[in-house]
Design a protein around this nucleic acid. Structure first.
Lengths: 215, 215
DNA sequence: GGGTGAACATGAAAAGTTCTCATATACTAG
DNA sequence: CTAGTATATGAGAACTTTTCATGTTCACCC
């Protein structure tokens, strides 16, 4: 089974101003991201302040700008980290179910997403880049394509269909799942169960209609 | 056929600070919203500035704060206006196809949405409140429920199902359509045709599976 | 173990935004 | 025509973002 790539993640939208080289600074950058995540959970995205981030992370404002070109880049880095974690989790889960039906794969992936919603600070607010990449920045690229490409590689081995058809269907399925799960969490902080179930139903129904039920 | 309500629109999230009473000021408020829409199209949401809005609208900053409590409220009012226009357009279209199959109704509604994407300034960026209501503000309420409730009333007369089942299915369908059409416009400024077609297919497929094909 | 250059840290202050408010003008009702 | 309310205005108070000159720490080499 092909492994999901190591996610070089976001196509350098607003790259770091400087890559942390020494370990102490790498740790500090992580602290800043953690602080951002916590603050976004507590105050929401637009009450987020660079001063606040710095204070919470226990560093000087200047340190933040040592690595990030601007505030937006901080949030962007946070979403990139979310994306990495997601891809990593999916990869790990895949090892456990080498030869399942793709049906179960859909459940697994959605479950991982649910898990992140519930446990990763800030995730339910920024996901994989809604705020920054989609709403605020110009469009074109989207982080979801990273996920889609990975999943396409993965499924190409199992489904006897032209790979582009596959990618298209997965793009659609991904978008639908994303939207419905967001709705579920909007309705209820822990994720509305009924909507989650429906999300799985819709996605599977769509993929089955497009590819048939065969593994 | 029940008419869609006049949309009292958003549940007073951040109400206007003062309701324009005189006509001149009502007009000014409209100008400010127009300016905001244009600027959002040109610069994106977070480059939006109250000073800029005022300048573009040809008014003093203070005038803006005369009616809006803060910047966010301006964008919120803009989305409310979008929502009103959408509901109005749906209503109008409905008169034309009194007794169509619900199938065609779905097409019509999506077409209206497409039309707005293409013609209403700022719409493709703010839709019915993505940025403000969803991402930045606290959740719970969502403008889509206004639409959903209207459509539910509308369809209740045609489909022989418990109204709550209907509302649930329409909520799901609405969210799916919204997500896919956004994707279509993210991929291509004029709306990727293939994705639009798929959106219609997915929505109809889902509703048909839930309610059967009967009118 | 001392020297050197790059990486890193810092916070005062420059630059830019949001929002207020005292003051002035336009409407509207009577 | 007049009082009373609605509206308009923009300088400036309050707060944010971002820069930068200065000082430290680290990694490496002789």
């Amino acid at each position: 089974m092909s492994d999901i790539q190591a996610a070089k993640v976001p196509a350098e939208a607003t790259p770091l101003r400087r890559q942390p080289v020494q370990q102490r600074s790498a740790k500090r950058v992580e602290q800043m991201l953690d602080a951002s995540a916590a603050l976004i959970d507590e105050l929401g995205y637009d009450a987020l302040t660079t001063t606040l981030i710095a204070k919470r992370a226990g560093v000087a404002v200047g340190s933040l700008y040592q690595f990030f070109p601007d505030k937006r880049a901080v949030v962007q880095a946070l979403t990139a980290r979310n994306l990495e974690r997601f891809v990593a989790a999916v990869n790990e889960r895949l090892k456990e179910l080498e030869s399942e039906h793709w049906w179960d794969l859909v459940d697994s992936i959605l479950d991982i997403y649910l898990e992140m919603h519930r446990t990763v600070p800030g995730f339910s607010k920024v996901h994989f880049g809604d705020i920054i990449d989609r709403q605020l920045l110009d469009e074109t690229r989207d982080n979801n394509t990273v996920i889609v490409d990975s999943l396409t590689d993965l499924l190409a081995a199992r489904v006897d269909r032209p790979v582009e058809d596959l990618r298209f269907a997965i793009t659609i399925a991904n978008e639908v799942a994303d939207a419905l799960l967001k709705l579920a969490f909007r309705r209820e902080p822990s994720g509305d169960e009924k909507i989650v179930a429906e999300a799985k139903y819709v996605v599977k129904g769509y993929l089955a209609a497009r590819f048939g039920e065969r593994s």
